[in-house]
Amino acid sequence: MKAILCQKHGLPESLTYSDVPEPEISEGEVLIQVAACAVNFPDVLIIQNKYQFKPELPFSPGGEVSGIVEKVGSAVKHLQVGQRVLALCGWGGFAEKVKVEAGRVFPIPPQMDFITAASTLYTFGTAYHALKDRANLQTGETLLVLGASGGVGLAAVALGKVMGAKVIAAASTAEKLEACASQGASELINYEQEDLKERIKSITDGKGVDVVLDVVGDKYAEPALRGIAWKGRYLVVGFAGGEIPNLPFNLALLKGCAVMGVFWGRFSKEEPKQSQQNIMELVKLIQSGKISQHIYKTYALDQAPQALQDMLDRKVIGKGIIEIDIDGY
């Protein structure tokens, strides 16, 4: 079978399009014929050996797939050969087939296509866990999303609106902010051209924002923290801006605010029942048309390195998807 291989740690250009053996599954795993695999920022980090999970070389990146179950381990009872599924595999998804622990595989509703399924878990799963479980976002509160045009950012914008918050989207270009407005942001900040702290103050009449969801970190984190309201909640989701910020924690004292981490991958393992409940709720929101994924572009499997380079260059608005043809679908 064909796969994109990381044979040495480095940038996307170092990846190879290779022939590899079909994975062999254990009794608790399933083999999935991949139809679509989402492109996520952790994929850029994992090939550089900069992510929390560090698979042994060689490996394929790609942690979020949809497709058809081809084989089922002897201990797996809730999945069947031929079933349409989505899965959180961690890595291995940039390939024609991938093996996944059965507990990380979920059936796709009949009316959901493969691209929608593959673009749901990381972004909407992370954003929903952040806003619902960590921040306890309430109707009428104000939500600021930093890096709002990325996959998690746009998902947070859409979910924030559905949850009844006033959403402020912050991104680096007019094109990106336009996409944020289309997902429900009522206020927009271009943080490359505007003073982030002052714009927050202006928009909120000096009160500050109740919740900050931050996927970029870097130089934007401190002014956002300074713009948080009394008893606000600052959600640390990622560091797409490059640098991990050193925050002055006297601000947390002065504002009575909470700075909390959001690690959806670990949450889904530590609290599987709550994670499953969240996914079911997200599927209902998608089916009802209340939220939808913004697809930036679809790529063929051999174009996956370019997809990762586009992610690294911050060109991707919403989600990039690797699409693989499956006979009969």
Rank of each mutant, 00 (worst) to 15 (best):
L5I: 11
Q7A: 15
Q7R: 15
H9E: 00
L11W: 12
D19L: 14
D19Y: 10
E24N: 12
I25M: 04
S26A: 08
E27V: 12
L31E: 05
V39Q: 01
F41V: 02
P42N: 10
I47D: 03
I47L: 09
F53P: 00
P58F: 08
P61A: 08
G62C: 00
S66H: 13
E70C: 01
V72S: 01
V72A: 00
H78A: 15
L86C: 13
G93W: 04
F94W: 15
E96P: 10
V100M: 10
G103F: 07
R104H: 11
V105L: 08
V105G: 06
V105D: 05
I108H: 10
P109N: 07
Q111Y: 07
M112E: 04
S119D: 05
T120P: 12
L121K: 00
L121H: 12
A127C: 06
K132L: 06
A135I: 01
L146H: 08
G150V: 07
G153D: 07
V157K: 10
A158C: 08
G164M: 03
K166I: 11
A171T: 05
E175V: 06
E175A: 12
Q183H: 14
G184W: 05
A185M: 09
A185Q: 04
L188T: 07
L188V: 11
N190Y: 04
Q193W: 12
K197R: 13
R199Y: 02
T204C: 07
D205R: 13
K207E: 05
D210Y: 01
D210P: 01
V216S: 13
E222L: 13
A224G: 09
A224V: 06
A224P: 08
I228W: 11
G232K: 01
Y234H: 08
L235Q: 01
G238Y: 04
F239H: 13
A240P: 00
G241K: 12
E243V: 09
P245F: 01
N246D: 13
P248V: 00
A252I: 06
G256R: 09
C257F: 05
M260T: 14
V262C: 11
F263T: 13
F267C: 05
S268D: 10
P272D: 05
N278I: 13
I286G: 02
I291T: 10
H294L: 15
I295Y: 08
Y296R: 04
G318S: 01
I321L: 08
